[in-house]
Design a protein around this nucleic acid. Structure first.
Lengths: 354, 354
DNA sequence: GGCGTTCCTGTAAAGGTTTACAGCCGCTGG
DNA sequence: CCAGCGGCTGTAAACCTTTACAGGAACGCC
């Protein structure tokens, strides 16, 4: 009696005249008499057998799937992370489940809890913000989790952080060294951890350079090109003497560039512009944007690796939670430095299109 | 005897003093005596029970997972698709498995065949190119597949296409209407279906407008900003009289803009530039790029919907394979039209960043 | 009072795989 | 010649859930 649906080890066993145990053993490379081996293999290929991964997962207790949950898949920073995580997962024989939380705290918590349904073996989570509920949910997580973001010390969960404080400082120092003295700062939403850190880095670097902190040079807005352009337009009205704009984000920086161009300012002669994240947008701008690479790809890669270590034989509950930080890197281009990065010499090559 | 691993319906049954069947029924909302209902629910919450999705899948024969396979997750076009597919899948209660084929034909075929392992209920595939092996594999696909791309007519698989022929024509006509007469064309790799179509659209539109086809104005290169810049630099040497550059891709167009800027050309006064895909890069450029939106998001959405229809009750094998085409849309910005799209008025708002 | 309904519950099978255990065969060594 | 052992193989259980089926109790009706 075969026929039913797709072939199973039972169909193979019947056709080969052996037991299902032998089929399983042969197919998993355990020992068998050469003749048995032969008949099983032949039957399997004749039937076009493919093992049912679901049944395997049920028996084995793992799915070989990883979940990656991000606030917004469209954001270039997260795209860089997905890409690396995908690569690491694939190399290790894992599939990647992509979940968009739409920047919703309740959904983030739901993702953590849903580890309990055994759909995936582990989770890499990028929270938009860490609330006490997060701490609670993560502490009680029903499976291994790695957080990309800043986690309080007590939480027994691995985490990979960006160092936006020194990242911002890097940019400010660079601007100062380039002779700028009135450096505006366009921040994103300040109620997030990175928002606070970037502000801190900006302020600290100003202090370190002996420059005054002028609140009139600082503004916060939503992320987005248009928001950045409007914010900078207002800034230019209030402080027409500024000579540099540092933005918490490449999108904001693009907006800044547009606002400056619209008023006929030359970049970088009249005002320098620097962004953060070093996304593809940075090289798309004219002049190409100086930007601080906060290591999104690197963070993704590390997070995936840490998660896989937890899943590997040794990693279980043994090891205590680890914290690691990706070093920021300043990429200087034409928006702050007239001679830098001529067209055609950048590294963003090789993407394919449909 | 509980304790073992996480709670199962057995643990609940023991604790509530009922059978596992009753537990299952209560938890699935089928009828039960109020008292039974109560005890089961109480036991379930006390134990923190979460149903095992793998066991459910095994029994039910479906995983509520969809696979989306793309050549390269970093490409903005595919990002737009992922985003929409994710949204549709999520709304329908499906999870999304993201697979990067790295533009490898063998991997694409592997993805189609791997539908047989029952890991996901269906597949949306973006092939880099359609080979005879693709046709064969798709015809024999062990589960529902929707292809984003151009499929020969005989293949019994749903497909969603872009219309790059009229897309390219749209751009060329717009340039001609803006008074341009010597319009260069920078194509991507020509051995792909879109590459050929874009070339056809360019040529057809020139003919329709009564303009001569000058091979010296046409070039093909890899996608990528740097490649575009180099190609346009060569073009400018060969045909210094050109007055517009049409690119098969926003990345190439960005490169074109940079090459023109580098030689001191003004855009759009000395030369207009238009791209394709209308990605985020288009609004990042200065001046903002006119670009043809080939409806990547729309194609993703449609593909996901078609796949879900196949999975729904009616859709089985009944319906014959469908073909649908997303209409291209020209988005005019400053790179071809001096007054268009002032900064801050664009629609690319709201992205969040870490 | 008995019979038929209806409602609820429990037993058991099924879904496809892996694997512990036991059985069988044949061979070797004493 | 027999004990013992090693190599293969088959049976059956387990993973966790859903669900067909049958049994049982309560109730209404004749």
């Amino acid at each position: 009696m075969s026929s039913g649906g797709p072939p199973t080890i039972v169909s193979i066993a019947e056709r080969a005249g052996v037991s299902i145990a032998s089929v399983s053993r042969v197919l998993n490379g355990l020992g068998a008499r050469p003749e048995t081996e032969d008949r099983v293999r032949r039957a399997a290929t004749e039937l076009g057998y493919v093992p049912n991964a679901v049944a395997r997962s049920l028996k084995g207790g793992h799915t070989r799937q990883l979940t990656f949950a991000v606030p917004d898949i469209g954001n270039p920073v997260y795209v860089a992370m997905v890409r690396e995580i995908q690569a690491v997962a694939k190399a290790a024989g894992y599939r990647l489940l992509l979940h968009s939380t739409d920047a919703d705290v309740a959904e983030e918590l739901g993702v953590v809890r849903s580890l309990a349904d055994r759909t995936s073996d582990g989770l890499v989570l990028v929270p938009i913000r860490i609330t006490p509920e997060h701490v609670e949910a993560l502490t009680a997580a029903p499976g291994p989790v790695v957080v990309i973001g800043s986690l309080p010390d007590g939480v027994p969960v691995d985490a990979v952080q960006a160092d936006s404080v020194t990242g911002a400082a890097l940019a400010v120092h660079h601007l100062v060294q380039a002779g700028r003295r009135r450096i505006a700062f366009v921040n994103g939403p300040v109620d997030t951890v990175p928002g606070g850190n970037r502000a801190r880095g900006y302020r600290g670097a100003l202090a370190a350079c002996g420059l005054p902190y002028d609140p009139g040079l600082v503004t916060a807005t939503d992320f987005g090109v248009g928001a950045g352009a409007r914010a900078v337009a207002r800034l230019l009205d209030a402080r027409p003497g500024l000579d540099a704009v540092f933005c918490a984000n490449d999108q904001l920086a693009i907006g800044a560039v547009q606002a400056l161009h619209a008023r006929g300012w030359r970049i970088p002669e009249d005002a320098a512009v620097a962004g953060m994240d070093d996304s593809d947008l940075a090289v798309a701008a004219w002049p190409p944007l100086t930007s601080v690479d906060l290591g999104a790809g690197e963070r993704g890669r590390r997070a995936a690796r840490m998660l896989l270590e937890r899943l590997g034989p040794g990693g279980g509950e043994r090891v205590p939670a680890r914290r690691t930080t990706a070093a920021p890197r300043l990429v200087v281009r034409g928006s702050t430095s007239p001679g830098a990065a001529p067209a055609g010499s950048d590294e963003q090559e090789g993407a394919r299109s449909a």
